[in-house]
């Protein structure tokens, strides 16, 4: 009798454990498991960000402090660097420092520590009906320097290339120059290409009228956040398509990062270092991914 009771209790216990485990996993997968507060609002370092990383900082702040991010105020990349160097903020989440920003820091005797926190990729796209699926970086450079003017020069159909560019000094244009073109000079866009750069490249490339001619570029985060356009396709570069996975493991060749930047003199137990560590933790990565960014592997 005792044995039967014992067996019964064990079976019930086991079933309860299994059901409980499944339930917890379900809640976890839905993001319903409350996580602990890491910082109070007061402890959270004073922070600034680029416009493109503000959603990330908001998400981190909300998850780590369990408070609304409504009170956070941001400037943009360059003023954020100035604010950091001037000691007005403790940490900034931005693109990498420019030469000018590094010089400003040096002038003020501030040494910056720059830690990559999420990956970003530079992507190219064409209309879905374009037969080209892949280009090499060299071919891209030849297109945008004006050397190649027809898709048949890169294995496509006999069709003129309209190589759309972005507004000067915009993030995408700067990225194009520094990550792709490097020392190669970009051609001056013809009017038609210039118009498109204003109206939004992706729409133009996707439009019926430009189905075989257009090629454009952008940052992966921007393109993914902005567009749901089924009429474009991302090009593989050197044989690798830009996907979350290839950007995360950096097999996609044109990769950059968003960074946490702070004063190198921050103490090892400071809240700034604690914050950066938390951003790079599993929990931080999950928050970043949910906010639409590609986390670092």
């Amino acid at each position: 009798m005792k044995k039967k009771i014992f067996t019964f209790i064990f079976v019930l216990f086991f079933m309860a454990i299994v059901v409980g485990g499944c339930f917890i996993y379900y809640e976890y997968s839905k993001g319903n498991i409350p996580t602990k507060q890491i910082f109070t609002k007061e402890e959270f370092p004073k922070i600034d960000a680029s416009l493109a990383t503000q959603p990330l900082v908001d998400a981190i702040y909300e998850d780590f402090t369990k408070s609304s991010s409504n009170d956070l105020n941001y400037t943009n990349t360059h003023p954020a660097y100035v604010n950091l160097v001037d000691g007005k903020v403790d940490v900034i989440i931005v693109t990498e420092p420019s030469k000018e920003e590094l010089e400003y820091a040096k002038e003020k005797n501030v040494e910056l520590e720059v830690i990559p926190i999420v990956n970003e990729a530079f992507v190219f796209f064409v209309n879905k009906k374009n037969k080209i699926d892949n280009l090499t970086i060299e071919q891209i450079r030849n297109i945008y320097s004006g050397e190649y003017t027809n898709f048949n020069q890169v294995g496509g159909e006999n069709s003129k290339i309209l190589a759309y560019q972005r507004p000067e000094n915009s993030g995408s244009q700067t990225g194009m120059l520094s990550l792709v073109m490097k020392d190669v000079k970009m051609k001056k866009p013809v009017t038609e290409e210039y118009i498109a750069s204003m109206a939004g490249i992706i729409d133009i490339v996707a439009s019926f009228n430009n189905e075989k001619q257009g090629i454009g570029y952008s940052y992966y985060y921007y393109a993914n956040t902005m567009y749901n356009n089924e009429n474009i396709k991302f090009l593989g570069i050197n044989g690798v398509k830009p996907t979350y996975k290839t950007i995360q493991d950096k097999t996609y060749p044109i990769i950059t990062n968003y960074y946490a930047v702070f004063n190198k003199n921050e103490a090892s137990d400071s809240n700034v270092r604690k914050l950066v560590k938390q951003i790079l933790s599993k929990r931080g990565s999950k928050v970043a991914k949910k906010a639409g960014y590609v986390t670092i592997k």
Binding site: S50, L51, A52, Q54, P55, D58, N70, N76, R166, P167, E168, N169, S170, G171, S172, Q173, Y194, I195, M198, S218, Y221, Y222, T225, M226
Partner: peptide
Amino acid sequence: YIDKDLDYSEIEDKTIEYLYLFNKKK
């Protein structure tokens, strides 16, 4: 009219920011 001298450089970033506010119902 669209003037090539006008600085449109911040529009992309601002779009991201505004879109983010829109998605957050702000």
